[in-house]
Amino acid sequence: MARLLFLILLTLSASLAWAGPTLTVYTYPSFVSEWGPGPAVKQAFEAQCDCTLEFVALDSSVAILHRLRLEGESCTADVVLGLDANTLSDARQTGLLAPHDIDTSAVRLPVDWQDDTFVPYDWGYFAFVYDTQQLPDPPTSLDALINAPENLKIIIEDPRTSTPGLGFLLWMRKVYGDQAPAKWQALQKHILTVTKGWSDAYFSLFMNGEAPMVLSYSTSPAYHMAVDNTDRYQAAPFDEGHYLQVEVAARLRNSPHPELARKFLQFMLTPAFQREIPLKNVMYPAIDLGDELPDVFDRLIEPSRTLYFEPQTVAEHRKAWIDEWLNATAR
């Protein structure tokens, strides 16, 4: 038994030796998974940098920020990849990040992006994905959803614990302003339940047929159409417009390899990186990929308006808006 234990420990702790500098990138798990963009990105970057690219997957994009705050000055990562517009203000405030110093002219986003620290690498819209078999005629606007017959149920995520949840909170706020709490109350009868995270909502409930609509991304159907070959799940376009999600990366001030980190951020805006985004991260690429953009992306909804709060505004009001939402719905 002792020998077996020893062998197992040996296997578990076996570490590999590498030559050249190692660029450490904090990210979230789905980015580095077998089906995520991570493996291909690693291969492409290592082919041109004479270095080792190492992804450290933390449990979510918020966990990346949490880790930064815990590690503080002693943080040994070179790059963080996976923050979004709603967490970047807090990340900036840690003072641990350095200006990117790269040319971002290739960036194409629905909004004008000017930031000296954060480089966007993909984006998408929050949207309700619906099951065409259960719901042939989905609501065409937030208003229509709120005023729909009571038996139309939706599944949303909690803004306190999930990114899409917070996105929807901001979406409602952007559309309805101070009317948002009243609209939340009106929406309440349609909300089947509020889950902790996207996986619970999508897998445990939506895929079980619990409700015909779930809060997700406008790009979600791309995967179903391209890989599952089914048009069953579609995003519902809303007249008021859709809230924008932008994912960003930044380099750390204390990075041991500042030049390499800069090189990686620049690499992020090249087709070698970006072509992995559409089907592997299931988001829009941050540059114009031209013909390389998969065809299914042409069949996704194109919102008439892009809704967006400046990160600074989100950071200032998030707590108040969440409290407002709680007061309106937690009865």
């Binding site: 904090y26 798990p29 789905s30 580095v32 998974s33 077998e34 089906w35 995520g36 991570g38 493996p39 992804f55 450290v56 997957a57 933390l58 449990d59 979510s60 966990a63 880790r67 996207w198 996986s199 999508y202 897998f203 895929m207 979600s220 995967y223 179903h224 890989v227 599952d228 592997k280 299931v282």
Partner: peptide, 25 residues
């Protein structure tokens, strides 16, 4: 496993989550 930064080698539950976030329902 997700708390400390996992290597790219997943355990079963982590694999499940990775599959989910890749829409491999």
């Amino acid at each position: 496993i997700a708390l400390f930064g996992s290597p790219s080698a997943p355990t079963l539950p982590l694999l499940l989550f990775q599959q989910l976030s890749a829409y491999r329902i």
